[in-house]
């Protein structure tokens, strides 16, 4: 049982992680790199509409002061080669980190699924999809309502405060999902709704005045894609998890004397 929890968590995490890597490379990574061009000043929001520096002199000043970064105009061919290499290293690290994160979610989900199966839950694909969607709501939607996915170059409130709010919100939302799935009486559902609402009544850490170097349309595109990647990753994590748990049943459990319990 212990081995299966780890093995199924690992394999489901690797399956979902592989798809997330592919989708990140195709969908979100190009937008992150584009946003960094606005952050570094290589591109300026409103550049076509107003004099650079009038609306966003922060970015323009940075660009004027800093030497051209590798790969930016002015750095030459050697710089571009170095940039290509460092970009490959950067992608490799990011993709490794995707696997680490999804294996971690896989281990947690595997532990919870093992408890549900011990309680008699069927290993159907419907249940797998529900597990995945519950994870998507708990880890992406619930905290995302207060702390939307961020692009580089967008100022935000104090990092530690946001991390604490994020963790608390994910825990509360996960508990709510558990109440909806396994308690299912009016009191449990009411408690679940309260747990979902509470972090937002307290409110996520937020700057009084919002700003950002990237155009709003780029941010909108990015947020939509970030949720698409997450939905694919979590659905696949839940489906592959339950498939793995149902695939090869444990050897017939040996009856344990009641006094051992």
């Amino acid at each position: 049982m212990t081995v299966r929890i780890f093995a199924n968590g690992l394999f489901a995490g690797l399956i979902a992680g592989a798809v997330v890597v592919l989708l990140q490379f195709l969908l979100t990574e190009p937008l992150i790199l584009e946003a960094e061009e606005y952050e570094s000043g290589a591109r300026v929001h409103f550049a076509g509409l107003a004099e650079p520096g009038v609306l966003h002199d922060h970015g323009a000043n940075e660009a004027a002061d800093a030497p051209p970064a590798p790969g930016e105009p002015g750095a030459g061919e050697a710089g571009e080669a170095a940039a290509g290499e460092s970009l490959a290293a950067r992608f490799a690290l990011a993709f490794a980190a995707d696997f680490v994160v999804y294996v971690a979610w896989g281990l947690i989900l595997s532990a919870l699924v093992s408890l549900a199966i011990a309680r008699g839950q069927e290993t159907s694909l419907q249940n797998g999809l529900l597990w995945g969607l519950a994870g998507f709501v708990a880890v992406q939607v619930a905290p995302g309502v207060g702390l939307a996915p961020e692009l580089p170059g967008i100022p935000a409130a104090d990092l530690q405060a946001r991390q604490i709010w994020w963790i608390a919100t994910v825990l509360a939302a996960a508990a709510a999902m558990g109440l909806f799935a396994f308690v299912r009486n009016p009191a449990g559902i009411a408690a679940g709704i309260a747990l979902l609402a509470l972090p937002h009544l307290i409110g996520a850490p937020r700057l009084e005045q919002l700003a950002g170097l990237a155009p709003p349309s780029l941010v909108a595109e990015y947020v939509a894609r970030s949720y698409a990647v997450a939905l694919a990753g979590w659905s696949l994590l839940g489906l592959s998890m339950v498939w793995l748990w149902g695939r090869a049943a444990d050897p017939v459990p040996v009856p344990v004397p009641a006094d051992d319990r």
Partner: peptide, 10 residues
């Protein structure tokens, strides 16, 4: 190392 992952996974 995890920068782009943290952004993508929110």
């Amino acid at each position: 190392a995890a920068h782009d992952t943290r952004h993508t996974l929110a």
